[in-house]
Amino acid sequence: MRSHATPASVRVRAAAKVNLHLGVGAAREDGFHPLTTVYQAIGLFDDVTVERSDVDRLELHGESWVETSSIPLDATNLAARAAALLSAHHGRPLPSSVSIRKAIPVAGGLAGGSADGAATLVGIDRAWGLETPDEVLLEMAADLGSDVPFALIGGTALGTGRGELVDPIADEATWWWVAVPNRVGLSTPQVYGHFDRLFPDADPVPPSADALIEAVVSGEPVRLARTLHNDLQAPAVDLRPELGELIDQGEAAGALRGLISGSGPTVVFLCDGADGAREVAAELGGAGHDVVLVANGPVAGAHVVHGLAGLGEGGVDG
């Protein structure tokens, strides 16, 4: 049950995602690629604080490993777009001060911008006591971007369409990851364009995620490692060969499997447990990678951590 209280300030936490499976079909006539993906939310978080205000404000702060200079603070920012969607839906101004504290690397294939958009939807809804139905929030999230609905839901989930149609997957395991971001981003449209050039005869139907889902349900890290799949890895590595070298390096350090996250350039490594993840992270850090992050998953979708306890640990209700 949601509380009917209306706090003056709400802080919402939203997680990074990795794609355990990313199957890409040939581009449709509208330019979009049909996707079959399995998302997992992992324990790297952005915090978004929303306060009711007289005017709209958007400010941004980043942890030391997050380069924020390329993030727009105008109406194109996903947080600003989320606020505009809520205002339009409810037919009234909802002036809010939105402060984003970023710990998810930018332009890295971890959907940090999507996390911020999802967190802003929840934060403004709760700060203004709007009680927007969850299904409406999910529709708004899909309007914002393919990864935003999952950022609301969290956990582990199957995504279809452009990734915006999300169905949770039963996942009782705890998976351990090492993430190595890159300070030089990689454009998602560029990676998809290179996919089209490398695979001009791609099947319009993306590869199935059935084997991956079975591995998730099994809870066996070695089995999951064998089924991890990303059709964008080949174009990303072709554009940035050092990413392939990093994958080899991490696997040599003991990771079960290395994988480009989404369109990259962040590389994630599945490990056999917490100790294994820390050992791989130490090895990669010692090899000169200045930012190496350890995280477990799955974790909750966008949820309130201060100001109102009405949204539980599972993200959007239901």
Rank of each mutant, 00 (worst) to 15 (best):
T188C: 03
W175L: 07
Y192C: 07
A170M: 07
L165K: 15
F199M: 01
T174I: 14
D167E: 15
A179V: 08
D147V: 13
R183A: 09
D196V: 01
A179W: 01
T160I: 10
M140N: 04
R162L: 12
A173I: 05
D171T: 14
A151W: 05
A179M: 10
L144Y: 07
V148Y: 06
W177I: 11
I153E: 12
Y192G: 01
L186A: 03
P168A: 12
V166F: 11
V148P: 07
G154I: 12
D143V: 11
R183P: 13
G159C: 12
S187D: 05
A151Q: 14
A157I: 12
D167A: 14
V184H: 09
Q190R: 09
G145L: 10
G145T: 13
V191P: 04
V191F: 08
R162M: 02
D196G: 04
Y192E: 08
V184Y: 05
R183Y: 04
V178R: 12
L158S: 10
A173S: 15
E164Q: 02
F195W: 07
F195G: 03
N182Q: 05
P189S: 02
M140S: 04
A151F: 03
S187H: 03
W177M: 12
H194M: 07
A151Y: 10
V178N: 01
A141L: 06
P189V: 06
G163A: 07
A173R: 14
R183G: 13
A151I: 07
L158T: 03
V166D: 11
A170P: 06
A141G: 13
D196A: 01
A142Y: 13
G193Q: 05
G145F: 08
L158Q: 04
A170V: 11
W175H: 06
E172T: 15
G161Q: 14
L186W: 08
L198V: 06
D171H: 02
I153T: 15
G161P: 14
L158N: 04
D167R: 15
G155C: 09
W177P: 02
A151D: 13
A179T: 00
P200Q: 04
G161S: 15
I169R: 06
Y192L: 03
Q190M: 02
G193I: 01
P189T: 02
D143R: 15
A141V: 10
L152G: 14
W175I: 15
D203M: 06
T188F: 06
A170Q: 09
G163D: 13
W175Y: 14
Q190T: 00
L198D: 08
L144Q: 03
S146W: 01
G163M: 04
G163K: 12
P149D: 13
G145P: 01
W176V: 08
P189F: 06
D143S: 15
T160N: 06
W177K: 00
F195A: 03
A157E: 07
D201R: 05
W175F: 04
R183C: 01
V148Q: 09
D203H: 06
L165W: 12
P168H: 10
V178F: 05
F150N: 13
S146M: 08
D143W: 10
D147Q: 10
W175S: 09
Y192K: 05
L198M: 04
A202N: 05
N182E: 02
P200S: 05
P168V: 14
E172Y: 11
